[in-house]
């Protein structure tokens, strides 16, 4: 485990955090705008967040 790899993984995790934060925030806005489409928005949000999360895990395990 080298320092650059760990820093790189950290950067990826920051990116993933920002990404998931964006998805969550936008989903909230969308729900606020259209509360009746709550279910659909939530599903789409979870899928997108799950995909991004996968990249984060990939980075973490690559370092490990």
């Amino acid at each position: 485990m080298t320092i650059p790899a760990i820093v790189g993984a950290g950067l990826v995790v920051i990116g993933v955090g920002i990404g998931i934060g964006q998805i969550g925030g936008k989903a909230m806005e969308a729900i606020a705008r259209q509360p009746e489409s709550y279910g659909k928005i939530q599903t789409a949000m979870l899928i997108a967040a799950a995909l991004i999360e996968g990249i984060g895990f990939a980075a973490l395990f690559a370092v490990q």
Partner: peptide, 9 residues
């Protein structure tokens, strides 16, 4: 694969 990694991690 993402399913298994997500739950595990």
């Amino acid at each position: 694969f993402s399913l298994l990694i997500r739950l595990y991690a």
